[in-house]
């Protein structure tokens, strides 16, 4: 059993309107040092698979569905866990 964390973020250069709004809000709170905020997603997946297949499987899922390669980058962390 594997616990997988997938992170998706907008590619550098793609305007992030939510990030801009949060940057402004932080400035209003006095955090003038904040230069940029980028907002992304974290997905936690629990997957039944084997050591040799898991990474290829996660990559495939990211490319097909979890991320949109036109505007998003993705990265993942894979951790093997003992089934409960």
């Amino acid at each position: 059993m594997f616990k997988v964390k997938v992170y998706t973020t907008l590619k550098a250069g793609v305007l992030d309107p939510q990030g801009s709004a949060v940057t402004n809000s932080l400035h209003h709170l006095g955090y003038e040092g904040v230069e940029d905020v980028r907002i992304g997603k974290v997905m936690t997946l629990t997957i039944n698979s084997t050591e040799d297949k898991i990474e290829g499987l996660v990559k495939e899922m990211c490319e097909k569905l979890l991320a949109n390669p036109v505007i998003e980058d993705y990265r993942y962390e894979i951790e093997e866990v003992v089934a409960q």
Binding site: L15, P17, Q18, A21, N68
Partner: peptide, 17 residues
């Protein structure tokens, strides 16, 4: 249609949210 790749590009949140 964009997600399906039948048209090029993608959608972002409106600039003014």
């Amino acid at each position: 249609l964009l997600e399906a790749g039948l048209l090029p590009g993608a959608m972002r949140r409106n600039q003014n949210l």
